[in-house]
Design a protein around this nucleic acid. Structure first.
Length: 270
DNA sequence: CGTATTCCCTGCACGC
DNA sequence: TGCGTGCAGGGAATAC
C-alpha cells in the first residue's frame, strides 16, 4: 500500500524514463478510477512533453506544458514504464504512450487511485489544504505541539491527518509512535513539546530510511522498474499484534483507532 | 472548527 | 476444493 516512501520511490524510478519525453497517446480502459478521468487527459495531454515528475504528499504530478496529470496510487496502484508491446494484465487501466515507444502503465486493482488534471498555474483543490511535507523544515515538533493544543483525538489519528502533516499513513504512524515511545491512544493535546520533537524526529528518520530502502513492500506495491521494497522486514509494530515487542518482549496490543488497525507496546509506549 | 462515521473496491486469509 | 465472510486501507464526503 503506497505511502509516502513508496510514492517517492515511484517518482524517482519514473523520472529518468519520463522527464523530457513527449506523450504520444493516452489509452483509457475505463472511464474512471476513484473519480472520472477528466477530458484533458485524453484531449490535451497527448502531444505534450512531460517536463518534470514531482510529488506532493502522496500525489504524483506529471508536469506537462498546459497542465499536469495528477495521480494518486490509492492503496493498490502502481506505475511502471514498460516496452510498448508488453501484454496487458488485469487492472491495467491507463497507458501513456511515450515518444520512445514505451508505455507508462497505471495498474490499480482496487481503484482507490485517481488520475486528474491540474491546469498550469492552478493548484488542484485536492492539494490546497495539505499540511507540510514531513521531510521539510516546516514539519517539526514545535509545529505539532502548536497544532495539537485543544485536540482530543488520539495522537495517531492526529498524526495521520493530512492537514497536520502529509504522507504519514497507518504503517509509518504506528512505527513512528513506537520509536518515540508515545501511546497511540493518548489525546493529541496532552502531549508535551519535548515529546512532539521526538515524534517529529522519528517520523523524519523512519520515512527517510524507508525511502532509502525503496519503500515498504506489502500486498502489491512494486516500484516502476519492478523491484520490490525491502522495508517490510524491518517493521517493529505494524502487523505484529500479539507478537512480542522487539524492545521489551511483552506482547504487542492491537486495536482499532479511528477505524484503522493499530499496534503498539503498552509498556514501551505511554 | 473538530470529531466520528461511511463509503469506495478488490484480493486475500480465514473457517466451514 | 470451493464457497462465503470479514478485513484491509487513503481520504473524501457526510453528519453531527
Amino acid at each position: 500500500m503506497p505511502e509516502l516512501p513508496e510514492v517517492e520511490t515511484t517518482r524517482a524510478g519514473l523520472a529518468p524514463h519520463v522527464e523530457g519525453r513527449r506523450v504520444d497517446a493516452v489509452t483509457l480502459r475505463r472511464p474512471d478510477l476513484r473519480w472520472p478521468i477528466p477530458p484533458q487527459i485524453t484531449r490535451e495531454l497527448p502531444g505534450q512533453r512531460i517536463h518534470a515528475v514531482r510529488r506532493r504528499a502522496k500525489y504524483l504530478l506529471l508536469e506537462a506544458t498546459t497542465g499536469a496529470a495528477l495521480l494518486h496510487l490509492g492503496m493498490s496502484g502502481s506505475l511502471r514504464v514498460l516496452p510498448g508491446d508488453t501484454p496487458l494484465r488485469a487492472h491495467d487501466h491507463v497507458d501513456l504512450r511515450l515518444e520512445d515507444g514505451r508505455v507508462l502503465r497505471f495498474n490499480d486493482p482496487r481503484r482507490f487511485g485517481c488520475l486528474l488534471w491540474q491546469p498550469a498555474g492552478d493548484v488542484h483543490p485536492l492539494l490546497r489544504a495539505l499540511g507540510p511535507e514531513p521531510l521539510s523544515d516546516a514539519f517539526n515538533g514545535d509545529a505539532l505541539f502548536a497544532l495539537s493544543r485543544g485536540r482530543k483525538a488520539p495522537v495517531k489519528t492526529f498524526l495521520m491527518d493530512q492537514a497536520v502533516v502529509v504522507g504519514v499513513g497507518n504503517i509509518y504512524a504506528a512505527e513512528a509512535l513506537f520509536s518515540a515511545g508515545i501511546a497511540p491512544l493518548r489525546a493529541a493535546g496532552s502531549i508535551s513539546r519535548e515529546r512532539y520533537r521526538r515524534l517529529a524526529g522519528a517520523v523524519k528518520a523512519i520515512l527517510s530510511h524507508a525511502i532509502r530502502r525503496g519503500g515498504t513492500t506489502l500486498r502489491d506495491f512494486i516500484s516502476p522498474d519492478g523491484a520490490p521494497g525491502y522495508f517490510e522486514q524491518e517493521l517493529l509494530v505494524y502487523g505484529r499484534g500479539g507478537e512480542p515487542c522487539r524492545r521489551c518482549g511483552r506482547p504487542l496490543r492491537q486495536a482499532s483507532i479511528g477505524q484503522r488497525a493499530s499496534v503498539w507496546c503498552p509498556r514501551c509506549q505511554r
